[in-house]
């Protein structure tokens, strides 16, 4: 037990340093472009643009931290939140790896597996994007051909369909209520599709509420 804390603590320590460096680096990118080209934008323009994205994206950002950190584990969180593409890639990847290894998030073995999964995923993603940009002339006709469009348009349904079979079948008693609620909600209010991130914790609250009731009654 003591050893576990020290591993987690060391990941927290180095993770915070990495994250601090990432923050500085992220802010240095626009700053250096402004300095290099001597082109500082009008504050009002930046503010206006920022105010149009911040209400949604800052809210989603905050929600993501509170919902994904328990799923990704310590190392996975520091890595996942820097490398990005969480809900469409990193979180499903970590979930799948944990499931295959038959481990739970939050245990130390689970921590090891999710960190390895997310690190691998980050390296592969970065490599594919780099190769893709470098070989663009060769692959663009294929990627942007009309035939391929439906495949890329439907990547999220294809991803979550497979994932759902594994998770919903194992926890169907807890899964039914949030699932029915979400399907009904999106059928009735299709415009909510763009703010799906905000609805993740709503689904989680319903699932946890139902789970608590069933657990108390000894049905789980």
């Amino acid at each position: 037990m003591k050893k576990e804390r020290s591993y987690r603590d060391s990941v927290h320590f180095s993770g915070r340093i990495w994250m601090f460096c990432a923050l500085i680096m992220m802010l240095a990118v626009p700053t250096s472009i402004c300095v290099y080209y001597d082109a500082w934008p009008a504050m009002s323009g930046v503010l206006k643009g920022f105010l149009s994205v911040a209400p949604i994206f800052w809210t989603v950002g905050v929600i993501e931290v509170f919902t994904y950190v328990p799923m990704l584990g310590t190392g996975g969180s520091y890595l996942g939140f820097i490398t990005g593409n969480l809900s469409n890639l990193k979180v499903p990847c970590a979930l799948n790896a944990l499931e295959r290894a038959n481990l739970h998030a939050g245990t130390e073995e689970g921590e090891v597996i999710s960190t390895i999964a997310i690190a691998t995923s980050a390296i592969v993603t970065t490599t594919i994007i780099a190769l893709g940009v470098l070989l663009l002339a060769q692959i663009e006709p294929f990627l942007e051909s009309e035939i391929m469009q439906p495949a890329f348009d439907n990547i999220l349904p294809a991803l979550f369909g497979g994932l759902a079979v594994v998770y919903v079948s194992r926890n169907w008693k807890i899964a039914m209520a949030p699932l029915i609620f979400m399907i009904a909600l999106f059928v009735l209010v299709p415009s909510l599709a763009s703010s799906v991130g905000v609805l993740v914790p709503v689904g989680a609250l319903i699932a946890i509420g139902v789970a608590r009731l069933l657990y108390k009654k000894g049905l789980l």
Binding site: L156, A164, Y167, L179, V196
Partner: peptide, 9 residues
């Protein structure tokens, strides 16, 4: 499951 149900919805 909260996350999966939101994305399935």
């Amino acid at each position: 499951l909260g996350m999966i149900s939101a994305f399935l919805g």
